[in-house]
Design a protein around this nucleic acid. Structure first.
Length: 570
DNA sequence: GCCGTTTTCGGCCCGACTGTTTTCAGTCG
């Protein structure tokens, strides 16, 4: 039983309790517990197995500790099963329809006997909906429109896809009159792997002009709301965008507020209350007097804290760390000395070794590891032993010729079903480093998958495990592996795990990055680039690493080649 | 349901916008 699964049960319980009219603070307690579990760098089940007291965790008390134990032991939660009898699970889906929240859904259940989206649709079409108190023809029309519309665009958008939209929108808003600063805030700024919407904050002396220009952006499909200072639209791509125009004096406070996370902001406001301060998107106030607001630094300083980097703002201990002066110095692009996983056109990349090396040099790197696939990866035109040997010679020649960049001889060796490597030892011995990866048989049992990979790590040449879970965001679930075991095995064997920067992979993710750090395991931040431009995917690898609290010392490719070499197996 | 330099009980973050209303509840972020 993984933390995500336990969290999912608590989230479902919270949704249904809320509809049932439970104490809202009790509902929040379940949501807080779910959030904590999703960010926990250790499996609650393992902590229980070691006899740890989960009620020592923040926001977990006696009751929730007991419920976690119940879920781990039985796979289910009796409280949830009982509640589902009166409040069917289908009702929770209704709260995801815009304009419907728990109170209205409860009314739908009690007055019309609605149990699911299908039931709501019937009520809306028959016209009964508009008769309910608090509902009206407009609400009914909105709900009908929801059922008529294509709702496929409402799923979360990958960070890299959101980035393209954000860049176009920012460029467009740059033309707004009187605008001073534009920040894309929200989960985008926190480098979350996917974003639900884009939150844009603009500092301007004439907010109305910013709103008007925004509303005329040519990618807008529908305008959901538009006021004097804020507006919400949906783009044709399905992505929702919220914009807020603020006075310069409030810009920092607005950036804090709209960058979130919600949990982080709530924690900040609570901290404010304890100091007799009110914190909102306009500033920090003592009684009615503003004491901060123009910059984020001022806002945090007014709360007695140093500026907290956006990637850490998840209420996962960053406020406590900031208070004690123990925030990590997060790894940044300038710390990266080379990329340890790229492809060339010898396998499934687009560019040749020379072009990749020059592109790496142009990015200020000292080294670049060429990691083409091996022959088992047939669709990727994987290299046979003899082709790899020729590539090794080619790299030796290029290293003679090119200055300012060292090309490392490497390979993304397939880890075969039994854990052996798809390349003879005699060839592996000629490489500077060996990167290995799983590319098939993703659905072994967790124990077998873990043993397969550990067997590969046992190989005397194996150094880095690429994209350890093999997940593809929104397309393929992560492999089921025993991650703690894998990390401990890597530590024992002098191996490292990769944080892969391909936008659909981001594997390891933030939580696993932090888990590695807590165990003392260092990571390789790599792009898995298949073209020269993709070397810039390092920013996505860094995003997850920074969300996982990693410092330069936690990352092997922040070192010079000489120092890195001493960390690698040969 | 959690939590405690004010509390073991009584608190628990804050404001904009919409649609329903005649002063505001619900939703949303």
């Amino acid at each position: 039983m993984h933390n995500d699964e336990i969290a999912g049960i608590f989230e479902q319980l919270a949704d249904l309790l809320e509809i049932d009219g439970a104490n809202p603070f009790r509902v929040r307690a379940y949501r807080n517990a779910a959030r904590l579990l999703r960010g926990l760098p250790e499996e609650a089940a393992d902590m229980l197995a070691r006899g740890e007291d989960l009620s020592q965790l923040p926001s977990i008390g006696e009751d929730l500790a007991g419920k976690i134990a119940e879920i781990v032991e039985t796979g289910r939660l009796e409280t949830l099963q009982a509640l589902k009898k009166t409040t069917p699970a289908g009702l929770a889906e209704l709260t995801r329809i815009p304009g419907l929240g728990p109170k209205r859904v409860r009314l739908l259940r009690d007055a019309l006997g609605v149990k699911s989206p299908a039931g709501l649709r019937r009520a809306a079409m028959s016209g009964k909906l508009a008769q309910l108190p608090g509902f009206g023809v407009k609400t009914q029309a909105n709900i009908r429109a929801y059922f008529d519309s294509d709702r496929s665009g409402e799923k979360r958008t990958r960070l890299a896809d959101a980035e393209k939209v954000a860049q176009r929108l920012v460029a467009y808003l740059e033309g707004a009159a009187d605008r001073k600063h534009i920040v894309v805030a929200g989960s985008f700024r926190r480098s979350c792997e996917t974003v639900g919407d884009l939150d844009i904050v603009v500092a301007s002396a004439s907010p109305q002009k910013v709103m008007d220009r925004f509303a005329a952006f040519d990618e807008i499909a529908t305008v959901a709301g538009k006021g004097k200072t804020r507006a919400t639209v949906r783009l044709r791509s399905g992505l929702q965008v919220d914009i807020r125009a603020m006075e310069l004096a409030s810009f920092g406070a607005a950036c804090v507020y709209f960058t979130g996370s919600k949990a982080h902001c709530i924690a900040l406001r609570k901290r404010g209350v304890s100091k007799g301060l009110k914190v909102n998107e306009y500033g920090v106030f003592r009684r009615d007097k503003s004491i901060a607001g123009e910059t984020e630094k001022d806002v945090y300083a007014a709360l007695g804290l140093p500026l907290i980097p956006p990637e850490l703002r998840e209420d996962r201990g960053e406020i406590e760390a900031a208070e004690k002066g123990k925030l990590p110095r997060l790894v940044a692009l300038g710390d990266i000395r080379g990329d340890l996983h790229v492809h060339t056109k010898a396998s499934d990349g687009r560019d040749d070794i020379r072009a990749m090396a020059k592109a790496a040099r142009a990015r200020g790197y000292d080294y670049l590891a060429i990691c083409d696939h091996t022959k088992h990866a047939r669709i990727a035109h994987g290299l046979t032993p003899s082709r790899l040997e020729r590539q090794i010679d080619r790299i030796d020649a290029l290293n003679e010729e090119l200055s300012g960049i060292r090309i490392l001889k490497s390979s993304e060796v397939d880890i075969l079903a039994d854990g052996s490597l798809d390349m003879p030892d005699s060839v592996l011995a000629k490489l500077d480093l060996v990167v290995g990866a799983v590319h098939f048989d993703f659905d072994l049992t967790p124990a077998r998958q873990t043993e397969r990979i550990i067997r590969a790590m046992d190989h005397p040449a194996f150094s880095i495990l690429a994209h350890p879970t093999c997940r593809l965001i929104g397309a393929r679930d992560p492999m089921r592996v025993q991650m703690e075991r894998l990390m401990d095995a890597a530590l024992e064997r002098g191996c490292y795990l990769e944080a892969n920067g391909q936008p659909e992979r981001l594997d390891l993710n933030d939580v696993y990055c932090r888990m590695a750090k807590e165990r003392g395991l260092k990571l390789a931040l790599s792009t898995d680039a298949h073209s020269t431009e993709q070397l810039d995917f390092m920013r996505f690898s860094l995003g997850q690493a920074r969300r996982g609290w990693l410092s330069p010392g936690d990352v092997i490719n922040t070192r010079s080649w000489r120092d890195l070499k001493s960390l690698l197996k040969r």
